[in-house]
Design a protein around this nucleic acid. Structure first.
Lengths: 190, 190
DNA sequence: GTCTATATAATGATAGAC
DNA sequence: GTCTATCATTATATAGAC
């Protein structure tokens, strides 16, 4: 396991570039240059560019699952855990202001391309959605947890899009603190 | 004025295609096929593809201004006028669920491309923002009208992104009605 | 103003040597 | 597993006839 697998390195670089440049705008040449490998080498690991996309989405699903598990450990209460999600816009501000949310922007790009992997990209959203739903359920069984999960996703996506358009960090911070306060209006029953 | 200008026809088709396929994914060939003109003909009207983008953004700015003026006539109160904006997600649902919001998705695409016209695309957002700010100011001078304008934009963008990802119309309708109700918590002083 | 023909560069993808 | 050709296609863009 000492040697880093080329396939994994391709996917890791493609993940970054698909996020920062968009899927379609990223060429094999871009990835090859950053990895110092030849373009022909790609086709030993992937038959098509779409397969790289599949690999990238798979990687994002794995990373997201790992992050959600980490948040389970970090937050003692469901409210705290939900706030872990809310704060990622602030934590990743520098990237979001330039490239948007990686989940939302890929979803939008693949929608326009009518791409076969569109539904797969949505799965990343679904991971967050179900995790958030689970947290809200732990707060109370008398609330529409799935609906609240969607609201958190939606709110965050709005902030991310505004961030990319206007790059106003103070507005984002304000909205994030409002969201955190809003979450705490839902309290666990004793 | 009987003859429709080819330049205008190019921009109108490009406007649609940039929205539905993305700017970069749309080729001259795509536009030419729909217009039944030759590719070479383009360069009589535009020197580069970027100039078509500029033309499209200019067109969108004009159309947006016209729409905002129309809403000024339609709504008797600032609250009603703001709701004209809020309802466009519902009115354009069929397109938004497939292609997202034309303003937000172009803003995001040009951000990733680090495109020279990125700031111009943001101007469409700014038109809505300033118009909404004006409406909120008419409701009351004791509120942060610009901040509320941003909130309306942000909220709508979140709904649009969720629409493209999950295509759940009932959720969108619910959020829209919540927004309308929220707007009416701000009332004009007598 | 519109067309055909063409230049040029880049793309995704393949074949085969090492 | 990686490389160097190379192919076929597509893209933006140009030149010049009509």
């Amino acid at each position: 396991m000492e040697k880093i697998d080329t396939r994994d390195r391709i996917i890791a670089i493609a993940d970054d570039l698909f996020y920062q440049q968009g899927f379609e705008h990223t060429s094999f040449k871009d990835i090859a240059n950053l990895l110092n490998i030849s373009r022909g080498n790609f086709y030993h690991h992937f038959k098509t560019k779409d397969q790289i996309l599949s690999g990238v989405i798979e990687r994002r699903l794995k990373k997201t699952k790992a992050m959600l598990e980490e948040w389970e450990k970090q937050g003692d209460t469901p409210n705290q855990r939900i706030k872990c999600y809310i704060r990622i816009v602030d934590a990743n501000w520098d990237k979001i202001k330039d490239f948007g949310c990686p989940v939302g922007t890929l979803s939008n790009e693949l929608a326009k391309l009518n791409h076969l992997n569109r539904k797969d990209a949505t799965k990343v959203f679904t991971l967050f959605r179900e995790w958030l739903r689970k947290q809200f359920t732990q707060i109370s069984h008398n609330i529409d947890a799935d609906n609240l999960a969607l609201q958190v996703l939606s709110w965050s996506q709005g902030i991310a899009t505004m961030a990319t358009a206007f790059q106003d960090k103070s507005y984002a911070e304000q909205e994030i603190s409002k969201m955190c306060h809003w979450v705490d209006t839902y309290r666990r029953e004793k």
